[in-house]
Design a protein around this nucleic acid. Structure first.
Length: 490
RNA sequence: GAGCCGUUAGCUCAGCAGGUAGAGCAUCUGACUUUUAAUCAGGUGGUCACAGGUUCGAUUCCUGUACGGCUCACCA
């Protein structure tokens, strides 16, 4: 249904008047010579006297308009910032000025003129030619307070971006973060690849998937919850270093650090173990912080975070010993159960030891890890794709890293023993049968790949959205995703 | 999934111990050729989220619904 209000009606009338004057309100192209930033850099030293050699053509959106009878000031915004333009009837001609009077805040216009300074010192273009490039028929939010309503900002990100320049900055930073990581990985001879988003069998993580359907194949397909198993197939195939920035989809709750679709970097390096990946991780992230901020120290929600390596390292057991009064090592399985129950953890009663240890970690430790910290050596029960520790087969060579109480990444020495992997799959399949919605199916093709032989390999996943939250000091994942998931408006 | 809070003009927000609504910006008309929250004068603009209930009367009180925010739970 088309919305109407007086303001839009008025603008449509102006649009018709402009058309009647024989002017196309939506012309096909324009050729600006400068961005507003170019002008600020190039003409920083101009004076109050207009000089014909300081000629520029700019294009952008009218953000404010101050009419003074036969002259008018406009703040014009382009992708690099704003500049003031000064339109005089004597400058553009009487006919053109009549059309100009039909321009509104929000319209996209082009203007040519010479750069000078007004007597208040404002860098300004004295315009002798101005034209409409696109008529805006929907009024922008108010200039002073901008757009505040969160719902509107998320649903109409375009309006948010027009009105709130700091929002745009966040997304520019996001791109820089990705670019920085990509540059470093390319330099280390990793190959960037693309693997399927539509998967016949989902796997590589524990999460409920989105299900879809392919008509021609007459088959259900899943949107990937991870790309792990495909990247490892490539390791089998002889790509020794691969990575992918992967949009993954998990059919679960939404909150300040979960969106149903999100971006994960996964990388795999043949012949490395998790200790090497740990070093790669801290160097990669610390360098990204440096590239984006020029320093390894940032402030996130008023907490100072120092990314300079080496980061703190603690085994999961050590971390539980440190942050709770419990020592999982000295407790029997039965005592572990009652400990966990006392801590308010809901249990069925038949959870294996490792599952409870992981729960204790979640409850007692995770939120306390503020500075970048590696937690390593996870229980085997919660890590179906990680290699066992040679000296203790109850635990695997796996780490996650945490910053500001958030899990940022996950890595392991990849399980490459096809016999062991098959057993782990069977356990998952049995959990699935028992009703664990986040367990997953046996992936026979992945096992077939492993049977050909996969070199010892270290793998890593990093949550790009969460990393961006940290580096741009945003409280919610919705503020680092351009179009976050929302319920329908109506 | 639970709790708390919110939804009033295009935007940002007031308000109503229950009597059909206000401000600023925007917009319109007039004046104004160096303003920058331009200024001055005068106007326009509202299904007070939606649906029920109580009441002589509901934007206001009550209930429900929708959407959103925050917190908690869930999420290895």
């Amino acid at each position: 249904m088309e919305e109407t209000n007086d303001l839009m009606r008025q603008r449509k009338e102006k649009l018709n008047e402009i058309r009647k004057a024989g002017i196309d309100p939506y012309p096909h192209q324009y050729a600006p010579t400068h961005t507003t930033l170019d002008i600020r850099e190039e003409y920083d030293d101009v004076t109050e006297t207009p000089d014909e050699t300081h000629r520029v053509t700019v294009a952008g959106r009218i953000m404010t308009k101050r009419d003074h009878g036969k002259s008018s000031f406009v703040n014009l915004q382009d992708s690099t910032g704003q500049i003031q333009i000064y339109v005089r009837r004597d400058g553009v001609g009487a006919d053109s000025y009549i059309i100009y009077r039909r321009f509104d805040v929000g319209d996209i216009i082009g203007a040519s003129g010479v750069v000078f300074r007004t007597r208040t010192g404002e860098l300004t273009i004295l315009v002798d030619s101005v034209e409409l490039l696109s008529k805006s028929i929907r009024p922008l939010p108010e200039k002073w307070h901008g757009l505040q309503d969160k719902q509107t900002r998320y649903r109409q990100r375009y309006a948010d971006l027009i009105m709130n320049p700091e929002v745009k900055e966040v997304f520019i930073q996001r791109t820089k973060i990705v670019q920085s990581i990509r540059d470093m990985l390319n330099e280390r001879e990793f190959i960037e690849v693309e693997t399927p988003v539509l998967q016949p069998i989902y796997g590589g993580a524990s999460a409920r998937p989105f299900t879809t359907y392919h008509n021609t194949l007459d088959q259900s397909l899943y949107l990937r919850i991870a790309n792990e198993l495909y990247l490892k197939r490539l390791i089998v195939g002889g790509f020794d270093r691969v990575y992918e920035f992967s949009k993954d989809f998990r059919n679960e709750g939404m909150d300040r650090d979960h969106n149903p679709e999100f971006t994960m970097l996964e990388l795999y390096q043949a012949y490395a173990d998790y200790k090497e990946i740990m070093e790669l991780t801290e160097n990669l992230v610390a360098q990204t912080v440096e590239d984006v901020h020029g320093t390894a120290k940032i402030t996130y929600q008023e907490q100072e975070i120092d990314f300079a390596p080496p980061w703190e390292r603690m085994s999961m057991i050590e971390s539980i010993q440190k942050y709770s009064s419990f020592d999982p090592e000295s407790l029997s399985a039965h005592e572990l159960h009652s400990t966990a129950a006392d801590a308010g953890i809901e249990l069925e009663g038949d959870e294996p030891r490792g599952v409870i240890i992981a729960e204790l970690f979640d409850v007692f430790v995770e939120s306390k890890l503020i500075q970048p910290t590696f937690i390593y050596d996870y229980p085997i029960e919660v890590s179906p794709f990680a290699k066992k520790k040679p000296e203790n087969p109850d635990f695997v060579e796996r780490f996650e890293f945490f910053i500001c109480g958030m899990e940022l990444g996950n890595a392991f020495s990849e399980l490459n023993d096809p016999i062991d992997q098959r057993q782990r799959f069977m356990e998952q399949a049995s959990n699935l049968a028992k009703g664990d919605e986040e367990a997953f199916m046996v992936d026979e093709d992945y096992l077939r790949a492993l049977e050909y032989g996969m070199p010892p390999t270290g793998g890593l996943g990093i949550g790009i959205d969460r990393l961006t939250m940290l580096l741009t000091d945003q409280y919610s994942i919705r503020d680092v995703i351009l179009f976050p998931q929302m319920r329908p408006e109506n």
